[in-house]
């Protein structure tokens, strides 16, 4: 197992109270496997990614749990070792390339720095290697682009440049946090093509995070659905899309024209809005929006349990049905 997350809990300690952005999550990623994490905005997906790298900003932190990467618990690793994991073991690309690239350094330098740090190349070699990485990411005129500053690139180019930086350390796991959300539709397609190409070519594991189930379904072998800091359903992607069990997942799929077309329920979204994480509903936090909810759901949060082969779900009604 490449990555095993166990009972991960992360919180922000705010003036207004404790905000549990990740509230007891466990999952595995095998080498070479692509795993998807979906959920509406604000449900804690990014914080899961940052928890794995132990990079949650103040006033937040990982409170408990284990993040086993190649058998070692990252949360208890000495800083020196942890730095080697970051970049060389696990690479990450962020939602907004414009914000994640340092505005005052040339793209080439930002890539070369990573290469020098993790692969120990000399300055000049690192630069030509950086140009190669840029080319591999499908950037035209890589030599010229290496000398550009981030503000001189288009949105899609910036995204490619950021992926190049993440790939420069040759990580075994790539976390892609909303890799296409900030982009135009056509560019979105290009970037997801690029990700698939990386997947094929480098055989690395990918944790793809998005609110867009379509994108995830397209790439991931297995998919996890997240709601208010918890996983509510995990399954092989085909099964999850074909036979969703959890009412929330069903709602998500129902909201998508292509995926939802086959199911008998007419195209529809989920009523209501994501609750405030500071003021969560009791019991199953989904109950105010759930069409199956009854009094049982309001008491205790349902545990994530096996509902079928390689298929887990956190819903009282689903367990009753099976």
């Amino acid at each position: 197992m490449l990555l095993s997350v166990r009972d991960l809990r992360s919180a922000f300690f705010l003036d207004e109270g404790e905000l549990w952005a990740v509230d007891g999550i466990s999952f595995d990623v095998e080498a070479g496997e692509t795993v998807g994490l979906v959920g509406e905005s604000g449900c804690g997906k990014t914080i899961v990614a940052l928890s794995i790298l132990d990079l949650i900003p103040h006033p937040g932190r990982v409170v408990s749990g284990r993040v086993l990467f190649e058998g070692r618990d990252l949360l208890r690793l000495p800083p020196e070792e942890m730095r080697k994991v970051r970049g060389a073991g696990i690479g990450i690309i962020f939602q907004e390339a414009a914000a994640a690239l340092n505005p005052v350094y040339r793209i080439g330098n930002q890539i070369a720095d990573v290469i020098r740090l993790h692969r120990g190349l000399a300055r000049r070699d690192a630069w030509s290697e950086a140009v190669k990485v840029l080319a591999a990411m499908g950037i035209p005129e890589p030599e010229k682009r290496a000398r550009s500053y981030p503000f001189e690139l288009s949105g899609g180019m910036k995204q490619r440049a950021m992926i190049a930086i993440a790939m420069a350390g040759r990580p075994k796991l790539l976390i892609a946090d909303e890799p296409t959300t900030a982009l135009d539709l056509t560019v979105q397609a290009e970037i997801s093509d690029l990700l698939r190409q990386i997947q094929d070519e480098y055989r690395m594991a990918i944790l793809i995070i998005s609110h867009d189930l379509e994108l995830v379904a397209d790439m991931a072998d297995r998919t996890m659905v997240m709601y208010t800091g918890r996983l509510v359903e995990t399954a092989d992607t085909k099964e999850l899309v074909g036979e969703p069990m959890h009412p929330y997942t069903q709602g998500l799929i129902g909201a998508i024209p292509v995926l939802g077309a086959g199911s008998e329920t007419p195209l529809q979204g989920i009523p209501g809005a994501v609750p405030d994480l500071l003021d969560l509903p009791s019991g199953c936090t989904f109950h105010p929006r759930c069409r199956l909810a009854d009094d049982e759901c309001k008491l205790e949060p349902p545990p994530l349990e096996d509902a079928a082969h390689r298929h887990q779900c956190a819903c009282y009604k689903v367990r009753v049905q099976t």
């Binding site: 940052l50 900003p57 970049g87 962020f94 994640a100 340092n102 350094y105 740090l117 993440a166 350390g169």
Partner: peptide
């Protein structure tokens, strides 16, 4: 607090490098 600082940390740079190289230049301008 900028994202590119988190990004720099995520690439495995030392905290000193992150501050001196990635943050300071932007802050000094």
């Amino acid at each position: 607090n900028e994202e590119y600082i988190v990004a720099a940390r995520a690439r495995g740079f030392r905290e000193r490098t992150v501050i001196v190289k990635h943050a300071l230049r932007n802050a000094l301008i």
